[in-house]
Design a protein around this nucleic acid. Structure first.
Lengths: 106, 106
DNA sequence: CCGTTAGTTCGAATATAATCGAACTAACGG
DNA sequence: CCGTTAGTTCGATTATATTCGAACTAACGG
C-alpha cells in the first residue's frame, strides 16, 4: 500500500499555490473538498477522463493543497488546512470564502 | 491622452485574479505597488525588456488588480484595493501579507 | 486466481503563455 | 518641429500546461 509524497509545509511556494487554485476545475475540487472531507477522486470527476482528473489532483498535491491517502482501493483526499493556515495565514480561508459565495449564487 | 480600459469589479473572476498573482514577477510588482502607490512601470522593470514588462502589466490590468492612468508621458499604476476588497474580501490582503513576510526574510 | 474498481503513468497532440527585439505611438521639453 | 522618454504592439520563438486514450498497477471481493 504505497503512499504519496507530500511536500513539507515550509517548502511550499505562494505562487505555486495561487497557480494551482487559478484553474476553475481545481478550485472547484478544493471547494468541494472543503465541504466534505476526506473524499476520493471519483465523485469529483465532473465528467472528465480519469487521466485529466489525476493530473489536476497531482497539481494540487504538489502545491501542498491536498493530502492523498491510499485506503484500500480508493485514494482519499483532504485539504491540508492547518498546515496551509500556518504557512500562508488567511490565504486559503479567504479564497474559499469567495469561492463558496460565488457558487452559492452561480 | 487616451486611457486604458479597466474591467468592472463585478466582472472580475477569482481564477483570473489568482492566475495573475501566480507569477513571481507579477506578484512582486503588486507587492511593490502596495508599498508605494501610484508608480510608473519603469522602476518596477527589474532588468526585463520593456515588452515583457508591458505584457505582465497588461495581465494585471485585465485581472482587475491594477489601474493604470496615463499622466503625461508616464503610466501611473495603482492597486484597485478597495474594489478588490469588496469583490473578493480578504483575498488580496491575505496574499499581500504573506508576500510581504516572505520578502522580509528572503 | 480472476475480474473489478480506482486511480496513475505514458506519449502525443493541442492550447496557452512567456520572452524578446523591432517598429510604433503619444506626450512633453526645448 | 525634433529629440527623448515611457510604454505598447507585433510577430516569431520557445516554454509550459492541458487534454485524452491506452496501457498499467495495486487492492479488494469472491
Amino acid at each position: 500500500m504505497k503512499q504519496y509524497d507530500h511536500p513539507l509545509a515550509q517548502d511550499l511556494q505562494l505562487p505555486c499555490l495561487l497557480y494551482a487554485l487559478s484553474d476553475p476545475f481545481r478550485l472547484e475540487v478544493v471547494r468541494k473538498l472543503a465541504l466534505c472531507q476526506p473524499q476520493p477522486c471519483a465523485p469529483l470527476q465532473d465528467g472528465r477522463p480519469k487521466s485529466s482528473v489525476s493530473h489536476h489532483f497531482s497539481v494540487l498535491r504538489k502545491a501542498g493543497i491536498i493530502r492523498t491517502e491510499v485506503v484500500g482501493v480508493t485514494h482519499m483526499n483532504s485539504l491540508r488546512e492547518r498546515e496551509l493556515e500556518e504557512r500562508f495565514p488567511g490565504v486559503l480561508r479567504a479564497i474559499m470564502a469567495v469561492a463558496m459565495a460565488e457558487s452559492a449564487q452561480g
